[in-house]
Design a binder for these strands. Sequence first.
DNA 1: CAGTGGTCTAGACCACACT
DNA 2: GTGTGGTCTAGACCACTGC
Lengths: 259, 259
Amino acid sequence: MNNHSPLADTPPSDAPALTPAFSPLYQQIKGLILQSLQSGEWKPGESIPSEMELAARYRVSQGTVRKAIDELASDNLLVRRQGKGTFVATHAEQHVQYRFLKLVPDQGDLNTEGPAQREIVDCKRLRASAEIARALALRTGDAVLQVRRVLSFGGVPTILEDLWLPGGPFKGLTAERLADYHGPMYALFETEFGVRMVRADEKIRAVLPDESQSELLQVPRSTPLLSVERVAYTYNDTPMELRRGFYRTDSHHYHNALS
Amino acid sequence: MNNHSPLADTPPSDAPALTPAFSPLYQQIKGLILQSLQSGEWKPGESIPSEMELAARYRVSQGTVRKAIDELASDNLLVRRQGKGTFVATHAEQHVQYRFLKLVPDQGDLNTEGPAQREIVDCKRLRASAEIARALALRTGDAVLQVRRVLSFGGVPTILEDLWLPGGPFKGLTAERLADYHGPMYALFETEFGVRMVRADEKIRAVLPDESQSELLQVPRSTPLLSVERVAYTYNDTPMELRRGFYRTDSHHYHNALS
DNA sequence: CAGTGGTCTAGACCACACT
DNA sequence: GTGTGGTCTAGACCACTGC
């Protein structure tokens, strides 16, 4: 037996044992913590039990728990605060207001620029097209929520976003709800719908706006825009949002750090 | 005394001790390893001494060396290979051919697409403009090398790049040298000039091509392009390259993973 | 087989936050 | 002071590579 399992939670597996699938103890612990996060045992913003407590609970040493938490922290799922504890990461109340927004002013940053003005242009329920369904892992025709909004900085409309959300998890989301909420949209998703976005993929292109896009962003149709297509995932790599953003890049740019 | 220093390499510091500047042992070890990397004691592709040897050399435990190496590995400066050793990361011979290029085909990946065709359009020495000098931390008028090249995929010109390199470190780089070399440009920089690019920042905008750009990329002037302005850094955050790429995004897109 | 990195443990002590 | 995460150590054993 290759694999030590301190808990019965990791059965011999029902999948064909082609790969011996050795996984270190701390990975198993990581998985167990992940389960508690998904199940909502510990909610965004709350603290999780101390390393000592978790070590006792899982019957492993503190060092093993520590390594599991280290990885979850570097995945941005947990946040460690020395002397206070380890907390479930949240899109609300974080000093990083826009965790997934990579558009920054050419001079200064989003903080010096002041808060963005938001305007919900449209919000309606409809049936998923084949394309939307594929992106959200739904079936064509399933209920989805479609939202269109504009973000302005210093009065200048800069971002136009169309987004699609699966109807089920977001039942009850309305234009009013979105308009009334102040703070990151992903924070609202967390507190109101229990949906925490964990990671996302973006595909970026240069495009020209169509008629309505040029009007909403107040630019001529000949002004090239950044098209940013994002699929955001919650735990378990479940896609929960498709978002297509159109960014003006005359006084802002999309910033990316490579390493 | 707050700070243990196992070596004399970390003198009491000549900077004003305003901040007590506590740094953990493994961070100091990390710094020492970094110095050896910069000095060329261990070259790209080579293996560094084993954890045990380093522990003996620095008079610390293996665990402390391990943590230092862990961080350097997650910074992509070192690569660990179980059973073999720890190696200095390199842009050559890596399975990741294009570590900094985030443009991918809409279908498949850069591997299925086959190797890119490269064409050096221009390569000349000139004096740095104020803008170029600022980006490369030079003085206006310093010698720089300017290169223009086109990358094509499947015969379709897709990327036009202008790049500027500081004249000093890249003395002897010619169009022939670039044209004859097969493999990533950053690999050539490593082997021929001892310049290893460690990280980079990119600013992305949507733009329309000028006359020469539209000709080289064989698109109308009304076709929006991605403008990708990159500053690449070697060790010590020293900028060593300014590169402005123009990407066609009709059948490719810039991919970015957010987490 | 020996040598390397990878995992796990147990214990000591430090730095930080709150009370 | 107490409790939290953060660092450091020493030793045992596992997994992988290549001789």
